[in-house]
Design a protein around this nucleic acid. Structure first.
Lengths: 201, 201
DNA sequence: GTCTATATTGGGATAGAC
DNA sequence: GTCTATCCCAATATAGAC
């Protein structure tokens, strides 16, 4: 919120990491864009990797608490949880919407970086959350193997990432669609695929 | 096929680009892994970018001709083309299978690189192909807007990329599934989502 | 076509004054 | 907490001998 040196660095780093990736972004480029001194990154974040982890954590902290509170509300509700409800609790906080347009592009970037860099970060930021949601899905679909549920959820994440994709656009001509149309198609696509598990072949 | 210097460089570059990304891979690392001289890259491929484009083209050239011949066979067949048939013609040549295990990881890597790098390459390697397939889908689904078809195809590609993913894996516990199980779920997921267009809401 | 050597630039990180 | 200056290393690319 405040215009501190840390936040100036985080803002500049985020946009550059999104556009050029981690390895493609230099600390000099970050500090120049932020209007701060080169040594400020090492002073405040220890290293370039520490800065990257900090940019991720800044965005994901509030997202994950939102996910958890939505899931808790579902599980404690009168009607109980459903597949669609759980999916929505997981994806709604990161759905492209009115707020934070940078969020989706950063998430897509994270998943595009080499595992050696983001593996520990993903484990830290998503480890608990993912297990909680898979457990919830298992309770709703008791007959389905855990691996199948995880695989299906992984595919849904892939759809999300592709739609969020700030990266190269293979299919042109999508520009004619409204934002609402896209979101409608996206949620229908994922929930339709997820429903396949309920009628095992 | 042959063990020429060019192919030694291409093999080494491919595996390193997959693992560390374009910017995260140095020409020194490539030439050392290939067992060739540092200057060989510039001599044979002009530049690091030229080498990257060559690695992509080597894999995609045969893939795209396979896609086109499959599509032609469909359009000229007695029964005519169907949505599933067109989708299969597009995705089957890159489906994870017995051969070329590096292919999927490279494709995932391509789509993870910054647009400034891979934009021109994607245009060159995929531009014609994508237009041909979208036109074919339009003929099979006359009432559906082109943008919606392209968007749906884009989401299907996202599922493919996530399953192929060379990158970080958020959902663990998928290891218990057989290869056939994964492919079955993947194709069911995509075709089920694609079918939504035939019954417009 | 392949090598050595090098030119040139930019990278991350740190020491120490202020 | 911020700055300058610098260390040390790695990067891409090329020139020129073989």
């Amino acid at each position: 919120m405040e215009d501190s040196t840390q936040n100036r660095i985080l803002d500049a780093a985020e946009s550059l990491f999104i556009e050029f990736g981690y390895a493609g972004t230099s600390m000099r480029a970050i500090t120049e864009k932020a209007g701060v001194n080169l040594a400020a990154i090492n002073y405040h974040f220890g290293s370039k990797e520490g800065l990257f982890a900090a940019t991720v954590h800044r965005r994901m902290a509030s997202i994950n608490s939102s996910r958890l509170s939505r899931l808790e509300a579902l599980l404690n509700s009168e009607t109980g949880a459903s597949v669609e409800g759980i999916l929505e609790a997981f994806f709604a906080p990161i759905l492209p919407g009115k707020t934070q347009p940078e969020l989706q592009r950063l998430i897509a970037r994270i998943h595009a970086e080499p595992p050696a860099l983001v593996g520990p970060i993903l484990e830290q930021e998503f480890g608990d959350i993912v297990n909680r949601f898979i457990s919830a899905l298992q309770q709703v679909m008791p007959g389905v193997a855990k691996a199948k549920i995880a695989f299906q959820l992984n595919m849904s994440l892939g759809v999300m990432l592709q739609v969020m994709h700030a990266g190269p656009i293979v299919f042109t001509g999508i520009t004619g669609m409204s934002h609402q149309q896209k979101m409608q198609q996206l949620m229908a696509f994922c929930s339709q695929g997820m429903k396949l598990l309920e009628t095992p072949s």
